[in-house]
Design a protein around this nucleic acid. Structure first.
Lengths: 337, 337
DNA sequence: GCCCAAACAGTAACCGGTTACATGACCGGC
DNA sequence: GCCGGTCATGTAACCGGTTACTGTTTGGGC
């Protein structure tokens, strides 16, 4: 058995396919009598329009392609959640693909989306501008998320890493912390780079003369834990740790706990992102409102799709400091909220 | 400017569209000379095949439709993560949609997928069998996740709620707990129903004669917190709480903490799912391996797509008890790991 | 009673690919 | 030198919709 097509409906209702199309889409002149005959035939046959064929002739798919790297756990989840909710609100489907695994070529996944989507949402913090330009289709409206800053021809939705880090370091130094360790993210990750740079300049502003303690990491919990364990065994002195994301900060907390150190009394700890976990672990962090980032990305892309030939835009997604117990003893024990 | 089509390539290479198609798909007999002319023309024009048109004539899309309810946070995220990773491994794209919000009609979202996907993954724990049958397309291969048990004509991947709950109650009673409160999920949720039923029969087995304390909930953290607060203020006695999911269990922990009660000394707490948070909060729970459930669902669906007309299957996804500090004092303080 | 416009319905082209079938060139065997 | 087969390529139909254009009917105004 195969699905009924518009021709089956037309035959059964004794009209042409053109009339069926008009009747079902309710646009043009169709007599009341024809319309009801068509509707009856359609329900009789359980007819469901073939979205693929429809979008081919309309040159419109009502789908948005989402390309993400294999971002670590919570981040990925949150942003997809935001996108999904906004997309379904606006009547779009999401075509999801990630840029890791079997697809080493960044363009192969983008090519696979040609003709299936009306627009593209691309998050590729690990790609440089040139690679990205080569891979991106020229004519599909595209919004980059945290794309390289120098791509002024593309719409770009970026996280305001600088402001958040600045506020955080200001907070730590105002609590008297001086030997602050920065645990960075992957070397080729744009956010990680910005956070590290912001860390350095904030340190110069708020704690001039102090050593810049900048260590490499990879955004995983494990990296956070092992780095701190190593530092402790080497006898390195520090009174605060700023991890470039929450997952690493959580690893840091565990290493400190195992070593018997008090947080925040001995060492203050802060992360970045404010993943759901952070609230429960009472972790000071910079809130990125990740789900909302996904919502904004969809919203702006859909607006672009509405316009004929929109200007590329640049939008900065603000961040905010969230002070909790791992840096501020006064909020310790207040517990999750 | 518009994207180049296969006809543009054909014109430039001075061949017919048929030859272009053959050359690019590398299947049939094409002379070496023609092939290279076609490839050159294609790269010159930056030609990318139109996936929509391709799938229309091939009757194959290489996409899988995923329909989910707006499951609470962590669960949704985990299952999508598993699906995404497996799908991209097998060369499929995921077309995502959820069943809440603007689409009250469960069939409208399924209809929107006709002709864009090769198969469907549907998770609808809140729908009854009849509604589901009416909404599901007859000819698209479909795998239900936690679908109603009575739908034997459909492939169904279900969570083994019973075994997990049984092991958990056995664990709690063996620790001497007797007045165990069950905090249930939404009334129309299949998993919630199964967990509640398993709770009752496990209580009869391991703690015969004890009261069955079964309270309603809705899978949210808030519900967990407020229910416990209310119970405490009413002076209800209990020495353990089994929440039907982890989020509620987390709410329970908070309420107990605020009330100054010791966990597990005064009250043992357990959840269900083993979301990432659970490990960090040292919460005893039943591991559902949610991401793996997503992986399995994709894997089985893709296998179905490979076969011509496969038998519907039933698969039970096993669960396992994970004992942590919120029930077992011996594992308390061992900390996350 | 005639003319013209409006309302409705059908024909067929088109969206961008794939592929069954037809065609023609070329080759080897007799 | 003719025949049959193989190989490369082109022609055109098809996938399942939409819609510009055309044709027919109907009705109102004069």
């Amino acid at each position: 058995m195969v699905e009924a097509t518009i021709r089956d409906v037309a035959r059964r209702a004794q009209v042409s396919t053109a009339s069926v199309s008009r009747a079902l889409n309710g646009v043009n002149n169709v007599s009341e009598e024809t319309r009801s005959r068509v509707l009856a035939a359609a329900t009789d046959l359980g007819y469901v329009p073939h979205a693929g064929a429809r979008s081919l002739s309309l040159a419109r798919t009502n789908a948005i392609g989402v390309v993400l790297p294999d971002v670590h756990g919570a981040f990925f989840s949150e942003i997809v959640r935001g996108m999904d909710s906004e997309a379904s609100k606006r009547g779009y489907l999401l075509l999801l693909s990630n840029m890791h695994g079997v697809n080493p070529q960044p363009d192969s996944v983008l090519r696979a989306m040609r003709g299936r989507v009306d627009g593209l949402l691309v998050m590729a913090p690990h790609l440089d501008a040139e690679t990205l330009i080569r891979a991106l289709p020229a004519t599909t409206p595209t919004v980059l998320i945290n794309g390289p800053g120098e791509l002024h021809d593309y719409s770009n939705l970026r996280l305001d890493n600088g402001a958040g880090v600045d506020a955080l370091i200001c907070h730590l130094t105002s609590l008297g912390r001086r030997r602050i360790i920065h645990l960075g993210g992957p070397r080729n990750n744009v956010d990680a780079q910005e956070r590290a740079a912001a860390f350095r300049s904030a340190m110069e502003r708020y704690a001039p003369g102090e050593d810049i303690l900048d260590l490499p990491g990879d955004f995983t919990e494990k990296a956070g834990e092992e780095t701190i364990r190593r530092l402790l065994s080497q006898g390195v002195q520090f009174d605060a740790v700023f991890a470039a994301n929450d997952m690493m900060a959580i690893g840091v907390l565990q290493a400190l706990k195992k070593a018997g150190l008090q947080v925040p009394a001995d060492v203050a700890v802060a992360g970045f992102d404010d993943v759901p976990l952070a609230r429960h672990l009472d972790l000071t962090t910079v809130r990125a409102r990740i789900a909302e980032l996904g919502v904004r990305a969809i919203a702006r892309l859909v607006e672009m799709l509405g316009n004929g030939d929109p200007e590329p835009f640049q939008e900065l997604h603000s961040t905010e400091l969230v002070v909790r117990g791992t840096t501020d003893p006064r909020s310790l024990g207040r517990g999750p909220r």
